[in-house]
Design a protein around this nucleic acid. Structure first.
Ligand SMILES: [Mn+2]
Ligand SMILES: [Mn+2]
Ligand SMILES: [Zn+2]
Ligand SMILES: [Zn+2]
Lengths: 137, 137
DNA sequence: TTGAAACTTAGAACCATTACAATTATCTAA
DNA sequence: TTAGATAATTGTAATGGTTCTAAGTTTCAA
């Protein structure tokens, strides 16, 4: 992380570190407000403005992805693998869906000549069954 | 249109009609503000609140799709065919990309068991070359 | 160690959208 | 063809996530 920041002329700060830790430790695509609440248990005097600033910084240096559903608050995701998002409309929860490189190629292949896509974003909406743990009693 | 509205117990109003006409006549994914500006040339006393209300109504009865890019203002699209959106980051313009049913199936096939998607949204970002008209001199 | 550049902070401002409450229009059924 | 119930429109205020600002603080290369 320090390396990635330095590469962009950015500095390593306690605020950036704890925010990134929060994202890594619970990967449920929290909003800035949720990150703020979690970070405050470790760093009670951090400001919400700093949370926004740091999240933006982490997105800039490609450690974190910003995800949007309709006009709701932006959510933050530290999963750097190519993946889609499944938005469960009942629970409001968001799940990562792995995307094989092969599928991404097939998707980009629908673009007519002249279109040069730098990124592809795929969002599913619907409901996800709560999986039953097969090891449960 | 009147039929589609009546089916949902909604009324056919001049405001709804002119807003839908505006969307059909220039399919460049305008924002509510842009729709408001266009509608006012025909109906100068319409209110912005009504534009928002009517757009929402058209979305509800499936005559129009709402499209969002990051946190920018919602854009509105009367194209009912399954299609993706290509967002040109230089010009800010948005283009429809036709999606073959076959591709949509392949995309949905990446979902693990237990996930039931009601809709799939695909957004490309990048740059689109201005196409040269082959019939031009 | 120092100092320039970067960062954090509290609070104000922004802006797309939604809520509100009063007025007006639509449309069903007498 | 109206009456009147229901739905829609309107101007304006409020909301909420986010960004801006300007003052103080920290980082880190030299
Ligand atoms: Mn947020
Ligand atoms: Mn809009
Ligand atoms: Zn994710
Ligand atoms: Zn479209």
């Amino acid at each position: 992380m320090a390396q990635r920041l330095a590469n962009s002329g950015l500095r390593f700060t306690p605020q950036r570190e704890v925010i990134y830790d929060v994202l890594l430790s619970k990967r449920d695509h929290p909003t800035a407000d949720e990150v703020y609440a979690r970070v405050r248990t470790d760093m009670p005097n951090i400001s919400l403005a700093t949370v926004y600033n740091c999240l933006e910084t982490l997105v800039q240096c490609n450690l974190v992805r910003a995800v949007n559903f309709e006009r709701g608050p932006t959510r933050y995701c530290p999963n750097l693998h190519p993946h889609a998002h499944f938005h469960d409309e009942q629970s409001g929860s968001t799940h990562d869906i792995d995307l094989p490189a092969e599928l991404l190629e097939k998707v980009s292949a629908v673009l007519p000549p002249g279109y040069d896509a730098k990124s592809v974003e795929i969002i599913f909406r619907g409901k996800a069954q709560p999986r039953v743990d097969p090891a449960a009693p």
